[in-house]
């Protein structure tokens, strides 16, 4: 690694890592939005990944190569339990069922001594780094880009525009929706495991309502016309508070207002990717 890059990373390590992790979270939101659904459980899925991976590392001393994939199991199970019944119903059910998940899990983390109670888990070794974080981010981006160009991508686009019409054309809407939600749970779980293994500490209060809404604001700021858009949205919203330190209190106000403005006035996000394919 060249010296200048080493120096840069040493100074801005936290920000550089946060950009990668938040990029993954934005993608986990993107995949659900891109089938026309809304899950507000991203932060809860992230917390499940963070807690399960931290426990595997700290209590069982498993290597990171096993811990990282294992961190997706708990989020997957929760996504299955909530997604299977709700995704057959109208979109509000998934949103309503997931919005409280983060708070429910927080109450559980605080009350279970095995997972550290109110103190959380500390002393997690720093196992994640540039390669694992950005490797996964690039893989995910590449995957979404390829899927977006395939028949699956066209089906997803069709059901986002009009699910009834898509179903009539033979798209198995419920299966695609569940697939998208499970993918999103995997990505959020991985992001949680990575973040737990860069910060050495995780606490029960980090995965509640506020981060859930913040993750949505990443995707809505960027738009969902392309997988790159939500990642850039996440980067903007991660860097802005770093540059405007004085407004730390108002960061959440800002994220909330972004969502309002994006839905009301910029339904395609601020980035110039077209939502619909041009007619061939």
């Amino acid at each position: 690694m060249p010296v200048w890059l080493d120096d840069f990373l040493w100074t801005y390590q936290n920000v550089v890592y946060a950009l990668g992790v938040n990029g993954l979270l934005a993608l986990s939101m993107y995949v659900v939005l891109s089938v026309g659904q809304l899950s507000l459980g991203q932060a809860a899925f992230m917390g499940l990944g963070a807690y399960s991976s931290a426990l595997l590392t700290v209590k069982l001393h498993l290597p990171f190569a096993i811990v990282l994939p294992a961190s997706t199991i708990a989020p997957l199970l929760f996504a299955l339990a909530i997604g299977t019944p709700t995704l057959r119903l109208s979109g509000v059910y998934l949103a309503i069922a997931t919005i409280g998940l983060g708070e429910v899990l927080r109450a559980l983390y605080i009350n279970i001594d095995f997972v550290g109670g109110a103190l959380g888990i500390s002393g997690i070794p720093e196992r994640a780094g540039l390669v694992s974080i950005y490797g996964l981010l690039i893989l995910a981006l590449l995957g979404f880009w390829l899927v977006g160009r395939s028949a699956i991508g066209r089906a997803m686009e069709a059901m986002r525009e009009d699910d009834v019409a898509a179903a009539t054309m033979g798209v198995n809407v419920a299966r695609y929706r569940l697939g998208a939600l499970l993918t999103s749970a995997v990505l959020a779980g991985l992001a949680g495991a990575l973040s737990a293994h860069i910060s050495s500490f995780i606490g029960p209060n980090e995965y509640g309502f506020e981060p859930a809404v913040t993750i949505l604001s990443y995707a809505l700021l960027g738009g969902i016309g392309s997988p790159f858009a939500p990642v850039i949205g996440a980067w903007i919203l991660t860097l802005l508070p770093e540059m405007l330190r004085g407004f730390a209190d108002l960061r959440l106000v800002f994220n909330g207002v972004i969502i309002v403005l994006a839905v009301l006035y910029l339904p395609n996000g601020i980035l110039p990717w077209a939502m619909r394919r041009r007619a061939a």
Partner: peptide, 19 residues
């Protein structure tokens, strides 16, 4: 669509609580 109103009020309520 229904989800637009859900998202807009979600953003608003976070802004209101945080403010």
């Amino acid at each position: 669509p229904e989800l637009s109103s859900l998202m807009v009020t979600l953003g608003a309520v976070l802004a209101l609580y945080a403010a």
